[in-house]
Amino acid sequence: MLKIENLHVEVEGKPILRGINLEVPAGQVHAIMGPNGSGKSTLAHVIAGKPGYTVTQGSVSFNGTDLLGLEPEARAGEGVFLAFQYPLEIPGVNNVYMLKAALNGIRKYRGLPEMDAVQFLNLVKEKTKILGLKESLLNRPVNQGFSGGEKKRNEVFQMSVLEPKLAVLDETDSGLDIDALRIVAEGVNQLRSPERAFLVVTHYQRLLDYIVPDVVHVLAQGRIVKSGPRELALELEERGYDWLLPSAVA
């Protein structure tokens, strides 16, 4: 589903990613772990199309489509979703309205008719129930006045309404207490399906107790230095990252 080959990315002339190779098939959850500054968030941003990054080499393809040539909204249309580490507050724009604009933007991209207000509200109600989200949050401006946990839950809620094919979770666990973490993880787990893939970017293995990955990749100094089964995360928890850094390996 997602295929990244020899991806090199620079920010303001400074190389951040130095040759990433990664393949995530449908139905799988892949975790990206690594120390601070290793390029984890950059990878998530580049997949979603955030401006400010320069791809100097390599490719990112999604079900055969070259993602790098697409605007962020077209990537969403193709089925990519990024759950932000720091979801933005959008004053004056109501949460439900934003989601309706998003869903219809995606439907339009796919050549589907727009959803009317009644259909949409029914869908939203159903998803709110599943996630245990307070309905009062729906009609508030996007993320404004939300607690850290509410913002992350709102990201998962948006994801569940938009039903992406690939969900990239950028440090979704940061700033969450254990209860919020569990709720957010349950939301993600409910969306797991054979047609959907997840890329879970995290600094700590704690999240992976709840969202159990099929593969764990370690990103360090802009490269994937090790990949392995779920147990790799536990080993990292115990031993840290130092033993995997290129200098230590060499």
Partner: peptide, 15 residues
Amino acid sequence: DRDAVFYLQSRGIPV
């Protein structure tokens, strides 16, 4: 805010 524009775009809303 450029980041806010990207946030909405990433949800599928045209720029």
